[in-house]
């Protein structure tokens, strides 16, 4: 879609259409462990790797990257990707699930100074429920996770009734009787 002619000339025609999207989120603490871990496997992955690195101080050598983008651009990167590798943030998880993408979650760890809140709880819960979500807390397991998740079956089906719960609460409390 948005492929530039340069990419074709490099002989990367197939690569331009298969993409692993990486997201470190917008938390102010750098998440270098994720970016370094992805950079290490970028040439093994056999796919184009694009990383949103946020406040990371490590700059990738083998993959394309940028720091931040708008929400619309974020959604279009996720949509274009064959899989998403990300911090275990609620936002990126929700967007990837809505767009039915296989997902590798790397929780930010308090002990490495990457987080202000623990992130692994939701990642581990979702990983236990879906074949297409893997939670890795040891970054060395990244290559294996990418291989494993590539052809996994995606079966997300989440709905929220929270707006309806609020609506009926209001009706009941303020407008009945």
């Amino acid at each position: 879609m948005g492929t530039s002619p340069e990419e074709f000339s490099k002989g990367n025609v197939w690569r331009a259409f298969i993409l692993i999207f990486v997201s470190a989120g917008t938390q102010e603490k750098p998440f270098n462990r994720l970016i370094e871990g992805v950079d290490k496997i970028a040439d093994l992955a056999g796919e184009r790797v694009l990383a949103q690195i946020g406040y990371a101080t490590y700059l990738p050598k083998k993959c394309e990257y940028f720091r931040f983008c708008s929400r619309e651009e974020m959604l279009s990167h996720i949509n274009a990707a064959s899989m998403v590798i990300a911090q275990s943030g609620f936002g990126i998880i929700g967007d990837s699930i809505k767009l039915m993408k296989p997902l590798i979650l790397v929780p930010r760890e308090l002990r490495f100074g990457e987080a202000i809140d623990k992130q692994y709880e939701l990642a581990e819960y979702l990983a236990s429920r879906h074949e297409s979500i893997i939670c890795i807390r040891n970054i060395e397991l990244m290559a294996g996770a990418v291989r494993k998740i590539r052809n996994s079956h995606v079966d997300y089906n989440y709905k929220t009734v929270i707006p309806d719960l609020i609506d009926s609460f209001i009706t009941q409390v303020f407008y009945s009787g």
Partner: peptide, 17 residues
């Protein structure tokens, strides 16, 4: 102001109050 905020917006955006 972060994730909590977007959750709150998703929960309440349709309310007409």
């Amino acid at each position: 102001g972060g994730g909590h905020f977007s959750e709150a917006l998703k929960a309440t955006e349709k309310l007409k109050c």
